[in-house]
């Protein structure tokens, strides 16, 4: 039964994704074609994967945060910080040395992990609501990013830096491998260790989890750190893509897109069960929407409007109240839940 539920959680997002892609085919017969050009695979689908990489990364981190009944509004600012640190630390580096690249990655990831830890500590140790705690970094982080770049858009002339977001490996964009690696790490940690179970239990009932001997504080700290990590890498990819750092605009709205991807993927904002695969599909839906809007020739201005409508539709579809109003036929299915009513009288 659970398996079929997970299936159904993934089912609709995939249907939506396929529909969006098919819609593109309608306008552009060559949409699905992929060809090898200059040693790279080129095509719209590859392009969606490549451009969607930062969002997928950030959404993976966000999924775990949301599963603990939290939210990380700071990711957009962390992206800006990461890009700023990365770009600034390779500024003026010579192309022939690869060392500055690793310094940049190390510094970015290190500092953003600290930023994540800061959020995690505020939430788990000080006990501030997640939406509030991460709001601080959302506001201040962008200021810090601008502080690092001196308020300028800093351009990077160091070639190896561009490889992170623009390089190719085995015909495919390197960023896809980064996503695959981070996704694999997340899957391993949550499904092959007890961390996944603990995240779901902390998100579903923190008090009961503590009384069952689970250190929920460390779990919460961990997910925010992981979210910071994901945002750091996403930020590096974004900054590397454009070979520059923009403290003001880099990663703008990413927290919202990431939350949207998580929700589309079937993870509830109320915490508990999470679906990493669903999140990936959700992120791809958002990216293909954007791509579609560009390729179909709709003015890009409509992008935000379309996103808004998608958010609303997805949320409405997940709302039990809406479903109830939509069809009375679903009522019989709810019969199982009658035990819930009983639970009220029993306790």
């Amino acid at each position: 039964m659970i398996k079929s539920m997970i299936k159904s959680k993934l089912f609709w997002p995939i249907v939506v994704l396929v529909l969006i892609l098919l819609f593109n085919l309608f306008f552009d017969r060559g949409f699905f074609s992929i060809e090898v050009r200059g040693g790279h695979l080129v095509g719209s689908l590859i392009d969606i994967l490549n451009r969607g990489a930062p969002l997928m990364l950030i959404s993976i981190g966000m999924t775990l945060v949301i599963a603990t009944k939290g939210i990380d509004l700071g990711v957009g600012s962390v992206i800006a910080m990461s890009g700023a640190i990365g770009a600034m630390s390779v500024a003026g580096a010579a192309d022939d040395s690869i060392l500055p690249l690793f310094t940049a990655i190390g510094l970015s990831v290190g500092i953003c992990v600290l930023a994540g830890a800061w959020n995690g500590l505020l939430v788990s140790r000080v006990g501030v609501q997640p939406i509030v705690a991460t709001l601080i970094l959302m506001v201040a982080g962008r200021g810090i990013a601008q502080l690092i770049t001196g308020g300028q858009i800093t351009t990077v002339y160091y070639e190896p830096y561009s490889y992170i977001g623009g390089g190719y490996l085995f015909l495919l964009p390197f960023s896809i491998f980064i996503v695959a690696a981070v996704f694999a790490i997340a899957m391993f940690l949550t499904r092959k260790t007890a961390i996944g179970l603990f995240i779901e239990s902390v998100g579903s009932n923190p008090d009961a989890s503590r009384l069952s001997g689970i250190n929920s504080k460390n779990i919460i700290l961990m997910v925010y750190i992981f979210s910071g990590f994901c945002a750091a890498i996403g930020g590096l990819i974004l900054s590397s893509n454009v070979a520059s750092a923009d403290g003001n605009n880099a990663g703008l709205w990413y927290e919202l897109d990431a939350i949207l991807a998580v929700v589309i993927g079937g993870t509830s904002l109320m915490g508990g069960r999470f679906f990493l695969m669903g999140t990936l599909v959700g992120a791809l839906i958002i990216q293909s929407l954007t791509t579609t809007i560009y390729s179909v020739g709709v003015p890009t201005e409509y992008n935000l409007v379309v996103k808004a409508i998608v958010v609303l539709i997805v949320c409405l579809l997940q709302s039990p109240e809406f479903r109830k109003r939509l069809t009375g036929a679903f009522g019989s299915k709810k019969g199982v839940k009658s035990t819930k009513d009983k639970g009220v009288t029993l306790s």
């Binding site: 904002l269 003015p299 808004a308 949320c315 809406f322």
Partner: peptide
């Protein structure tokens, strides 16, 4: 939307944020 479909204010007004800015661009 928040009241009658029991949606979270956060997510609904987020959509409102997209919508209003999008319309401004339109």
């Amino acid at each position: 939307l928040i009241q009658y479909f029991n949606l979270q204010p956060f997510i609904v007004t987020l959509a409102g944020m997209f919508l209003a800015r999008g319309l401004a661009y339109v």
